[in-house]
Write a protein that binds this DNA or RNA. Structure first.
Lengths: 235, 235
DNA sequence: TCAAAGACTAAACAGCTGTTCAGCCGGGAT
DNA sequence: ATCCCGGCTGAACAGCTGTTTAGTCTTTGA
């Protein structure tokens, strides 16, 4: 999205190379030497600039987080959100490194991953609340829990993109596997469920509600009673 | 689920220890020495039995895959599925290692992860087809794509369990973060969406359908036209 | 102009990694 | 009894890891 040329500060070049390698190989497998080599620099300089590999990772965390935060700023503005998606579909490679990096952060437990997930949930909750107020989204009992479910569903594409593209036979952009073709495959089925639901009646929902009502919420340990036939194989 | 005592073969003890450590720390971070130590054995013996660390991993893949395959065998039988869930809720720790291991396999690209994901999709597709035939699940245009969406949503709990438990304030069983309390939080919101849908009308679905229809599916590269306001921020 | 500071490198260091090797031990077959 | 073979160990090896160090080059500032 920004200047792809090599007019960047050496420090920034190292950071960007690290984001790419961390996203592709993970924080453990990506080595300081590989980052240095990708940035055209000696390993010592990486440490000189960032103190340690952990420091380099923190710098990458801060940078990716700041970048995605400015993008998520225009959350309740539907027009800019659409433009953002369109922008991504036109230039998928531009965001590839950040996407992969966030995927790694969400998997490999880290404070940055926590922060990103919380931001997505918060943002989703705002969108849902606005949608409810505008009448485009059904009124739900618990907005926060619903936001968590929706966010989890959305982020599953990020976490499982490689598998999704593979089983659907879509082209698989490296390394995250998320491309326009994948979104084209998933959009209608997902929106169909979000629009018309998945079950024909409220049988499963009622059963689960009953089961949860009579389920004594013991604060720790196993559940004493059969919770019933909640979530039969799916969900 | 089987004998937890130490009447196992040394080879099996090493394998089980490896499954635990691989699931907790990932395949790279978990070392042969750590596995050996956890199994009460010398590092050389691990190599002696499995040839290499990669061979050990393959053995773990085979074992976890076989174990989950036998469990998924009774897929279309709702009673046994319910019993399986109940069994898990009563003895969550029993499955913790396998769950974590599968999570790692799905994230860290591997043939075992691919096989597991495909099995889940296949199984989900069968369940959906049966549900449609029985009238409990709405008839959908594309059963396979719908199955992929449902499977992706379901597996997101596995991939993001730690985050879900954290933001919901639920107890977080190590290391995967999936416990009864988390399921208790998510069941009703998820089933509510699956039962009543999420949007109030088909506005978003229709818009996406129109956008996809007029979208020339170029087989490679960027999309030439604005795909429209599909999936506004969520989904 | 000179000195201080920072960017940068090449080499080395210590620690950890997977793996190998020589050999010990115990139990079954000959 | 002897042989031997597989389970098993402890030590060692080579390679890679993050990091340090000594030193060079370039820029900057008074």
């Amino acid at each position: 999205m920004r200047s792809n040329a090599e007019d960047l500060t050496t420090r920034a070049r190292i950071r960007d190379a690290a984001i790419g390698l961390f996203g592709r190989d993970g924080f453990t497998r990506a080595t300081v030497r590989a980052v240095a080599s990708a940035a055209g620099v000696s390993p010592g300089l990486v440490i000189h600039h960032f103190g340690s590999k952990a420091g380099l990772r923190e710098a990458c965390d801060r940078h990716v987080l700041a970048q995605t935060a400015t993008q998520g700023r225009e959350k309740t503005d539907p027009g800019s959100t659409r433009q953002l998606i369109q922008d991504y579909l036109n230039h998928p490679d531009q965001y590839a490194n950040e996407i992969s990096y966030i995927r790694q952060s969400l998997g490999d437990e880290s404070a940055a991953g926590d922060a990103f997930f919380d931001a997505v949930v918060r943002q989703t909750q705002d969108i849902i609340q606005d949608g409810i107020d505008a009448g485009t989204i059904r009124k739900v009992d618990d907005v926060r829990s619903t936001a968590v479910v929706i966010a989890s569903n959305s982020l599953s594409i990020l976490m499982l993109g490689r598998h999704l593209s593979r089983t659907l036979g879509a082209v698989t952009p490296e390394p995250h596997g998320i491309g326009p073709e994948l979104l084209r495959h998933l959009t209608l089925p997902a929106l169909d469920i979000y629009t018309h639901g998945f079950y024909t009646d409220s049988r499963f929902l009622d059963a689960a509600r009953d089961a949860l009502r009579q389920d004594t919420p013991t604060k720790e340990g196993s559940m004493p009673r059969d919770p019933g036939n909640r979530r039969r194989g799916v969900a």
